[in-house]
C-alpha cells in the first residue's frame, strides 16, 4: 500500500469521524492506456472535498458528482468511462483508455 493510499483511507475515516458523509471510488479495471491502475482510490466528502485520484484528472469531476448522489442513496454503483462511451458520458479519457470505477458510500 502506498503512502498515498493510506492518506486517502485515513482521510475518509477522519471525515466520517467529523460527521461528514463520505464516499469511496476505486478503479476496478482498466483497458488500454488508462492513467491510473486498478486499485487506485479517491475519497470524497459531502462538500465535494476529495483526495486521491482515479484518473489523471480526466473523470474526477464526474466521479465526484456521482459520489454525492451515492452518498444520498447508499446504493453502490459501477461507472464506466472511455472514449468509446462518450454518448453516455460527456467526460472521456483524453488519453484514450477505458476505466471502470466502483463508487460506494462509507457506512
Amino acid at each position: 500500500m502506498s503512502t498515498e493510499t493510506r492518506d486517502i483511507l485515513q482521510s475518509a475515516a477522519d471525515w466520517q469521524a467529523a460527521g461528514r458523509k463520505v464516499a469511496l471510488a476505486t478503479v476496478v479495471s482498466t483497458w488500454g492506456s488508462a492513467p491510473r491502475p486498478a486499485g487506485s482510490q479517491l475519497a470524497i466528502a459531502e462538500n465535494g472535498d476529495f483526495v486521491g485520484s482515479v484518473s489523471g484528472g480526466c473523470v474526477e469531476g464526474a466521479v465526484v458528482a456521482e459520489a454525492l448522489e451515492i452518498m444520498r442513496s447508499g446504493t453502490p454503483k459501477q461507472l464506466d468511462f472511455g472514449v468509446s462511451n462518450d454518448e453516455a458520458w460527456e467526460v472521456g479519457l483524453a488519453c484514450g483508455g477505458k476505466i471502470s470505477v466502483f463508487v460506494e458510500r462509507l457506512e
Binding site: 500500500m1 493510506r6 483511507l9 485515513q10 475518509a12 475515516a13 466520517q16 469511496l24 460506494e104 458510500r105 462509507l106 457506512e107
Partner: peptide, 14 residues
Amino acid sequence: MKRKLLDQLLADRA
C-alpha cells in the same frame, strides 16, 4: 464500505 471494515483495514495497515 462499512466503517468497521475500514477501521480493520487501517489497523492492518498500521
